[in-house]
Amino acid sequence: MFFDRDVMDKAGLLTGDGQLVPFESPKHALELMDKLRKDGGKLGPVFGHANDAAMGWRMFWTLFSQTGATFDLTGKRAEIDEDTAVEVVRFMADLTRDSRTMDVQTAIAAFAGGRSPMIFSGEWDMATYKSTLKDKLGGAPIPTFYDRPAGASDSHALVLPHQDDPDPERRRRAHRFVAELVRSGLTWATAGHIPAYTPAVSSPQYARLRPQSEYADAAKQLVLDPPVWFAGSGSDFQTRMCQALDPALGGSSSAQSAVRSMVSQINTLLAQPNPA
């Protein structure tokens, strides 16, 4: 997540050393957001999700993972703690109630344009924020609202296609090329992503990159999608989860119906034969 240091400071949401104050519970977080609205004189936090095929699910999966509740997709039917899921969806809608119908671009515009001092979004959008907020831009891993830190994540991967009879020399060069890319993580980091190459992250140059170094710990609390064949970035599964969540976040349907729809969609997918 990203925030406007000045406004957050004014609302008392930053500690003495410029860190985000801890949220003790969802309820506490909502109180602080009300304070932010009042003292900051702007919108509360925004979150772009409308018609997006990933953001709603990412946020849900983050918050749900923070509860540690059951989300087991290993059997023929999903075993999901639906009460907790409903609570999480309700909290999501409450937390982001100033951005009910915002799509990703609108939320970005609201934050980068100064209408809202706080946004839940990915580090890939950092450069846009930086271009308008400059040094006021602060970043942090998604706060822990429930019992334990967690943030839905994924990582870029380089896939070397399978070859039946590879030339060892060319393969070596391909590996070198990939290694070179990975070692150049610092360049990658300037655009916002957290490098996978740990020497890059622990380097003094990286520490000077702000707000990148402020949210680098997000890599320590990452949760990946459930390990089923149909999940993951760009999947139909994520699209369906987002589409089930959207009406609840927008206020046109309830959290219960969103969760019911999510569970039924998951069961539909679980019933299909695994093509991989």
Binding site: N51, F230, Q243, S252, S253, S261, A276
Partner: peptide
Amino acid sequence: TKGGPNGATRPILEYIYDTGFTNYR
């Protein structure tokens, strides 16, 4: 809309596309 909200606009061609190309079947 990518077929959303809640599948309300998903046409059968998108279902075919999703089934074949994002769900591999």
